[in-house]
């Protein structure tokens, strides 16, 4: 359950942020989020409320988790193949 979409904070006015969701901007309330939110931050939106400030470094953390799963798979030719493709494209 619980549709959640990340977006980038453009502006903060009191307890409301204007958030850019890839091409559309929407006001999102900040009553629930437990950290100070400033322009440039990413937040997770659910029903018009920010429920989490997403620290930028945590994106890398998740991708590192993926890498770890694939690293366990060192003997798998397919994953090696895919990893090199990912590296080539990044």
């Amino acid at each position: 359950m619980c549709l959640g979409v990340p977006g980038k904070v453009i502006e903060v006015r009191d307890s409301v942020a204007v958030v850019d969701f890839w091409g559309v901007r929407k006001e999102v309330r900040l009553d629930i989020v437990d950290e100070n939110v400033v322009p440039g931050d990413y937040i997770l939106n659910h029903v018009g409320f920010a429920i989490r400030r997403i620290p930028p470094e945590s994106i890398a953390e998740t991708l590192a988790l993926y890498e770890m799963l694939l690293a366990q798979e060192g003997d798998d030719l397919m994953s090696l193949d895919v990893r090199s493709e990912i590296e080539a494209s990044s």
């Binding site: 549709l3 979409v5 969701f21 890839w22 091409g23 559309v24």
Partner: peptide
């Protein structure tokens, strides 16, 4: 992008 994004929201 706007349609994709509003669709997801």
């Amino acid at each position: 992008d706007a349609v994709r994004s509003v669709g997801e929201l």
